[in-house]
Write a protein that binds this DNA or RNA. Structure first.
Lengths: 235, 235
DNA sequence: TTCCTTTTTTGAACGCGTTCAAATAATTGC
DNA sequence: GCAATTATTTGAACGCGTTCAAAAAAGGAA
């Protein structure tokens, strides 16, 4: 959403455009829902769609955001009933794939959105992280004290990995990545328990440190320009 | 490469087309190197380019394959000199990012190629796996016996994760993902050593089993159609 | 050579995402 | 009221990846 409508009619038009787009997406899939089709079905000109949405990807971002919100509402309640960590992880993974299943051919577009850091994906990331926080906080028994704080971030990481497998999964019904999800939950739970042991625990911390390095380290890396660019190959 | 040229002139034309494409890619980047430009610079018509390459992505696949081959030749020799596992991992990761650095704006296209299973990326995967096998086989001391066989596959997995971070890394010089690479090597090496402990070892095996499930398990998953498709939401 | 089949090459078109200058409508200040 | 400013809407165009029918060239059998 690039341009905020400043009049009431504008709001309506934008809303209608978005609603139409989501409808088309659900019915005809990603490729078939061209900007021309969406604009036509919404009763506005093609170029007008670009007045409110700066790109097609921008609309897709809204779709993904909607789906995540749906998912959040759907399974937020189920995470506080004293289930095991494994069950909670499973619930979130399942609801995630369930919400997105109809849009599997959006996979690559979704992935691009989530992995690139430039669009309105902050909100999406926030929702996802919040979910994983509820997964951890609502599980009984609670995971080891030392990792309780960072476990959600770790689970977010893991779930992204799974999501990326799902996005490109060509097996019928995405069977492969669904199986991956099913097996991932117990492994992650087991890992959390094992984090009581210092050896495993330090691995956990290492991995997390990899994913977002402290600002000090980043700054240090900024200074040392390795500068050993390759000699131009003879070709 | 969709159509194999059947005459000698055809071979030449295809080769010229490919060479021109790689040249354009190196000089002008992904977006600027349109099929029209490539065809024009190669001295053939636009549609003729599609006679030999079924898509632009097809040419990009060739580029990636070339880069991987280059990387393989460059660092294959360095892996047999009795360095530590960590040093070997670092060498491969470094040479990888070095080979691809010029083509960073191909990142998303590359990623798509490597993650989707439908094109000629078998060859690319094969080369990568071979490299990781040399990393393991050439390191001193050798990693624990029990994981020696599967460690290469695990390292391939890890490297893909890093690659995906690199592909979307918007920081100047891809500083963030380069730092990630630098820190990943010691963690992976440490992990390999810790695999002597049964706890850690079983984690290793769990993760690997996740990534390619045995055929039995896949077949089982195929039968049980969960079939709890969502009730159509009220919109 | 001539005819026929196969391979190579082309021009024209399609629909796509996106941009832009210009037209229309709404709002505001006087 | 009217003019000036701002918000909305449009049509036409651009370059892109891709497709297709058909022309041109090459090769082989008679």
């Amino acid at each position: 959403m690039t341009t905020q409508p400043r009049t009431e009619k504008g709001q309506q038009t934008q809303a209608k455009l978005l609603a139409t787009a989501l409808e088309c997406f659900a019915k005809d899939g990603y490729k078939a829902s061209s900007m021309r089709v969406i604009a036509a079905k919404a009763g506005v000109s093609l170029s007008h769609a670009y007045y409110y949405f700066k790109s097609k990807e921008d609309i897709v971002a809204q779709l993904l955001l909607n789906l995540r919100r749906e998912q959040y509402e759907q399974c937020s309640g189920m995470l506080n009933e004293g289930n095991t960590l494994e069950a909670n992880i499973r619930a979130v993974l399942d609801s995630g794939v369930e919400a997105l299943a109809r849009y599997h051919d959006f996979g690559p577009a979704f992935l691009r959105l989530m992995l690139s850091r430039d669009m309105g994906n902050d909100e999406i990331s926030r929702i996802e992280l919040e979910l994983w926080e509820e997964v951890v906080a609502g599980s009984r028994p609670l995971p080891p004290m030392g990792i309780r704080r960072d476990l959600p971030k770790f689970l977010l990481l893991v779930s992204r990995q799974i999501f990326s497998a799902w996005a490109f999964d060509q097996s019928p019904q995405q069977r492969r990545s669904r199986l991956l999800m099913k097996n991932m939950a117990p492994v992650a739970a087991k890992f959390a328990v094992l984090c009581r042991l210092p050896v495993v625990r330090s691995l956990f911390e290492d991995v997390l440190a990899l994913m977002d390095p402290g600002p000090a380290e980043l700054a240090a890396a900024a200074k040392s320009t390795p500068a050993q660019l390759r000699r131009p190959k003879a070709s």
